[in-house]
Amino acid sequence: MVSEIGIVIIEYLKWFKGVIFLFIDIFYWIVFGPFKGKFSRRQSIFQQMVFVGLRSIIIVVFVDIFTGIVLAMQTAYQLQKMGAVLYVASLVAISLCRELSPVLTALVVAGRAGSAISAELGTMKVTEQIEALETMAINPTRFLVVPRFLALLLMLPALTILGNLAGILGGYLVGTGSLHINPDLYMQTTFKYLELKDIYTGLIKSFAFGMIIALIGCYEGLNTRGGAEGVGKATTRSVVISFILIILVDCIITAIFYFSKI
């Protein structure tokens, strides 16, 4: 029993070590790669940005509009009792920008792009394509991981901003349509209480989430074992682990902001 727990712990530590090493390796190639004349090709970063970014727009907008709508209705239910329905506008905007939009966007992208990354890299691993790259003296981290990492790092905050806007639009629909708040007043109230720091704390979170999704997706993909079944397992693992880490890191970052009064 004790030895079994020991084995599990060792497995976790090994996994953690592997992820950290990949993280260091990515930074090595981003920072020092250009000095060696070894850029990750701009074209492949662009391709990945299109893949993780553009193709996720619709689903992100969809999720955040409806979240905005639900949030507006739920807060209206509370605020009506106090006769403060107008504040729906600022409540929706602040909770979206600080919390819901970064997290929900990250979860959507983890489910969509993170899983696709680990499926693709996993397939490349089990069909010896990764080994072929290494044999050709092409470093897989530089060639495959860095473009995906940079693409997610840039696109997730962009998608989050889009999600903020979509969520505010959702709240606006409820506020003006069903609560009969004057449209101009709604927008004024939204921006009166929404501060710049509410937006950038959300964006800081989404940078962190972007790194998590890329790192876990790539790590699980590159460490896939055993054929098509292994690819399936790696994909599932990458989504589950990304979800857990996103929630965990969200909690940690929120706590840091809370206690440092940002």
């Binding site: 397939t123 490349m124 069909t127 010896e128 394509q129 072929a132 044999t135 050709m136």
Partner: peptide, 17 residues
């Protein structure tokens, strides 16, 4: 550097899809 002087063909080709 040594690998750049190599070529290798794989049993299942291992072309990049």
């Amino acid at each position: 550097e040594v690998r750049k002087t190599f070529g290798m063909t794989f049993q299942y080709s291992a072309l990049l899809d």
